[in-house]
Amino acid sequence: MSEENILSVKNLTVAFGGHSVLSDVSFEVKKGDIFVIIGPNGAGKSVLFRALLGLIPYQGEIKWRENARIGYVPQRFNISYDFPLTVEEFLQLAPPKNTQEALFKVLKFVGFERDEHHIERHILNRRIGLLSSGELQRILIASAILDKPDVLLFDEPTSGVDIGSEEGIYKRLKKLNQEENFTLLLISHDLSVTHKWATKVLCLNSKAVCSGEPHKAITPDILTELYGKEKAFYKHNHEASAPEN
């Protein structure tokens, strides 16, 4: 693995019951990349994350840079409404114990911007099962960031986070990425997110269909291959509105 790579994947294959979900996927992620993985439903995006995290068996090679700290924000997180655990207790689960200031800071970072009294009363002391799915998503990000990871694996939810706060989160993650040379691996269902924030993209449809810088890698042909004709047309429109950077 070259010096600046934080992750290198070679010929990754994952199969469940004889059916291969990922076949022969290879890519590299450099430190500081915002690496976005796109692809249709069932393309193996979440499976790729689970393999990268060592949660499922795979063939091929996955090499993380030595001592890389990896944070993970799962897409689904099922917890019943009466699960007896407050947000503060959840955020304090992984050692070392964080100070109250650190908690307020990270909660502000993920977009809880009211005063500390309000945050303590309505967020920290709230049962985690009572959060809305958007709030829960932000708490999961906060929890991953508290651990000061070098890399964050973020499996974006398909629904639940309202667009306004989602935009805010990406802005802040981008800032963290620039300030601390932090690497972000993101599974996105939203092509506009990819165009706006990605430095690298991987198009996945059980095998790697494209990879590289988004404006070069994502061509209309690739999009048709990934999603069929409809989405390719959508993307064309999007390009006309000139993505900012």
Binding site: L53, L55, Y72, P74, L85, F90, Q92, L93, P95, D147
Partner: peptide
Amino acid sequence: SDKILTGIISEDLAVSS
């Protein structure tokens, strides 16, 4: 207990940490 609790909430989160 903190580790057990993490595992109960999400085995993926526990294993990945």
